[in-house]
Every structure is written in C-alpha cells, then in structure tokens.
Design a protein around this nucleic acid. Sequence first.
DNA 1: TCAATAGTGTCTATAAGACACTATCTT
DNA 2: AAGATAGTGTCTTATAGACACTATTGA
Lengths: 241, 241
Amino acid sequence: MSSVPGWANVEERRNLPPALAVSTVILGIREGKDGGPDKLCLPVVRRVRQPHAGMWALPGGPVDPRESLGQAAGRNLAETTGLRPSYLEQLYTFGDIDRSPTHRLVTIAYFALLNADQVGATVQDDNVAWFDIDDPQIAQMAFDHRKILDYAMWRLRNKTEYGQIAHRLLGERFTLAALRGVYEAILGRRLDPANFRRTLKSTASIEETDEYLAGGQHRPPRLYRYVGHGPDPLEVDPLHG
Amino acid sequence: MSSVPGWANVEERRNLPPALAVSTVILGIREGKDGGPDKLCLPVVRRVRQPHAGMWALPGGPVDPRESLGQAAGRNLAETTGLRPSYLEQLYTFGDIDRSPTHRLVTIAYFALLNADQVGATVQDDNVAWFDIDDPQIAQMAFDHRKILDYAMWRLRNKTEYGQIAHRLLGERFTLAALRGVYEAILGRRLDPANFRRTLKSTASIEETDEYLAGGQHRPPRLYRYVGHGPDPLEVDPLHG
DNA sequence: TCAATAGTGTCTATAAGACACTATCTT
DNA sequence: AAGATAGTGTCTTATAGACACTATTGA
C-alpha cells in the first residue's frame, strides 16, 4: 500500500488529526427517452490527483474552520459544479478508518436536489459529467462514494413525504404528469395516473393555478404549485447552509 | 464572552482545527407509575469543567484517530455510563460555528437503545443520573444537547419500522403488552390492545414462544420473540462500531 | 377524424380503529 | 366469586389500486 506515491504509512497516519470534508449527492431529473420513464441523474467530478486519480467522485471538499457544515457543502458544490440547489439535507457522516488510503478522512455527506432548469447546466469542464443513476460508468467510484450514493437513494426511497422533495426537482409550477414522473423515477415503478391524481390532491400539499400548459398534442394539463408545510427540524437552508 | 476562564477569543478560534467528538442519546424504557403509561428515559452526565460546568449533558467525548465513529460512540458510552447498548445508530452531525464557546466543535450524534435490564444500571457515580424524557430538569442542557435530544425523539417518532427498535428496548422475550407499552411511550398515546395485537401479528416480525409469564393476577400472557429482517444499510454494530 | 393525454367515476381489497365479547389467571 | 388482563370476533370507516369512462387538445 505504502508504495503508491503520496500515501502515508501507518505510523504517520496515527499521528494525523482526522481531516474534515463534505461530499454531496446532487440529484436532478430528466425526461425518459422515447416514452420511457423519467430518470434521476447526477453530476460527478473526475479526480485529478491521488488517491483514485481519474475516477469519478462526488463533488465536495474540505470544511473551512469558519463555516458551518451546510455552508461548506453549499460552497463546495457551487465551486465544483456552478450549481445552486433548491434543497440541501445532511445525509450521514462517514468516518471509517480506512476509507481513504492517504489519511484519516471524516466526510459529512449531503444530499441536494436540483430543479429541472438546472439539470445539465453545470460549468463547462471536462472533469464534470452527468450520469443517469443506473449508468454502469459510475458503478465504481472513488473512495466509498458509491456507498454514499447508494445510501442517498435508499434514503430517498424511504422518505415518508415525497411531496416535500418531489416539487424541488421541478420548477415552481408543474403538471401532475411531471410530478408523477418524479415519483415514478424515485420509486422505480409506474403509477396509475388516476389514482395518483386523487391521492395527491387529497393531501392538499399542492394547489391549482389558473394556468395550463399548451403545446402537447392533447388536452392541455393544468399547472399546479406546491404549498409546503413545516420542514424537518434540521433541514438545511440551501443558500445559507 | 472571553472573560470566562478558559474560553478562547475569536482570533484564536479561527486558527484551531475543528475538534471531533461524539455524543449519544441513550434511551431506555421504564414502567409507568400507578397505571400510567410507560416512559422513555435516558442517562445524562453532569459537566465538571467549563464550558457549561454543572449542567447536564449527553454522554460523549472525543474521537480517537485510530477508531471509527461508531467505535468512538460505543467506547465513550461505556466509559461514562458503563452501559453496552443493544442498538446504536448514527443520528446527525452538528457543526455550527458557535455551538461551543471555547473552540470549533463538530459532534457526531448517536442514538442508542437499552433493554429493560439495563435501565438504571449505570456505574455508581454522582455525576450520572437518569431522567424521564419529559423531566423539566433536562429542559435545558449543555451546548446544543437539548436540540440533539429533541431531534432524536423526532427521528424515533418518525421511524417507519418500530418493530426493529421496539424489541431492543425489551429483553429477548417479551409480552405483547410490554411491546405495546413501548409503542405507546414513543407515540405518546394509548393504543387499543386488540388492534395492536392483530396489526403486529400480521407483520410477522414477531414469533410466538411456548412460554407464558406467570405471576400477575390475571391470565398469564404468552411470551414472544423478535425475528428481525434485514437492517438499515448503515446500521452500526453496537459492539464493534 | 384520430391519437394522445387530461381528468372523473366507481368498484374492490385491504388496513385501521371502535368496541363487545370470551378466557384464564391470582387473590 | 371478583378483579384484572389475555385474547377473539366483528362492524365501520378510510385508503390504495384496478379500470372503464368522458373531455379536450393538435395534427
């Protein structure tokens, strides 16, 4: 192990204090190709230095002593991808001893959602790329980032309140079909349009607008707006961390 | 602020790397007094040094560079209370800049459950005490520990699977009435014994034994055993962290 | 007109709660 | 026998899914 350039040996590692970093799973949604279901996708960055140079990794970086953890996540995310998410939530802290070969690294993982306008709109950079959540190119990732991504998906699928997060993957106004697409992408199965409509309207977390979306070759759907209720007690302000 | 002995001033704080600590919310259950509902309770430790000397705090301490976060939680818990929990789960990481007045402190909060035998069985120590979850004496706690406790309760109440955690607050065998007591303490309301029985037996996560609990002045209840299904992907091994 | 999706109505299966009832222990 | 909790049966109501049906647009 210690023959790899730049890797500390065991004795050195024991004397280093743990480094603190944040990494963020950033999810957006894009429309399914030729009638298929919508897909969740995410931007990843290519590592340019050791360890794991050349592999895809979650965007992230060190925590500055003068910023909170949420601020660190927001800043790193903006710096590496140019994105400002509509939602930011702390996921889990990964601190196993051997998760980085070079030093003791404790990473606070965050989970961010982008609305439809932002998907694909990262800064032009050869070292940033978007993949569908099930793309084999990110089956392997640097460090334990694949485990972090899997955990993010597990958390997403086990959310009791999809309403809170689903609307943040869309714009401010959306059709019920678009909202259903989000649910289908998260749950990984098709939902009955009729039942979906009824269930959602009965929860009263969405509200009709007077606008309709024209252009499709069918009856124009009504646009809806999300009317949120109280957030989770520790939800992060995506702008101020 | 900097007049308090031992408190660093702002300039000093900016140069200090964040300290890493773990704190644990340890919950057990005890029987309600004179027919009242069962109550959740927890051990807390009295701080003997600044800051917040004299106040009650969650058990915890620093993370050693050579141990994982879960190991740190388990070790600190054993050292301060003498307890070995049956369940340990990572809760959330608190890292606001001003959460400790003396230095930048990042705390990974854990959540532990004790079974009935262990409640009250801490090491004899004047600086360790048990309180009911709603005891006014812990309405205020050191640092942001009250916020951590509130968040732990919120997470507990929002668990989709109570079965997984309820049985860890009891022994290996338990009556349905005891299990119902756990649910009632968590949810904060009484449940219909008949419906509770049916609902729980239909989930099939518990199994009958051939034993009965004698001694009460009523028909002796059957004892049940928990038959778990797969854990959460990041559940912590309470013995090995 | 047709294709396509929007949106409604209604039936059914399942689960949750209320509550009356029977069973079996200790004192 | 009395008192207490164990455990069963059954009715009502709320909800999720299946699926047939009508409505309204662009081509």
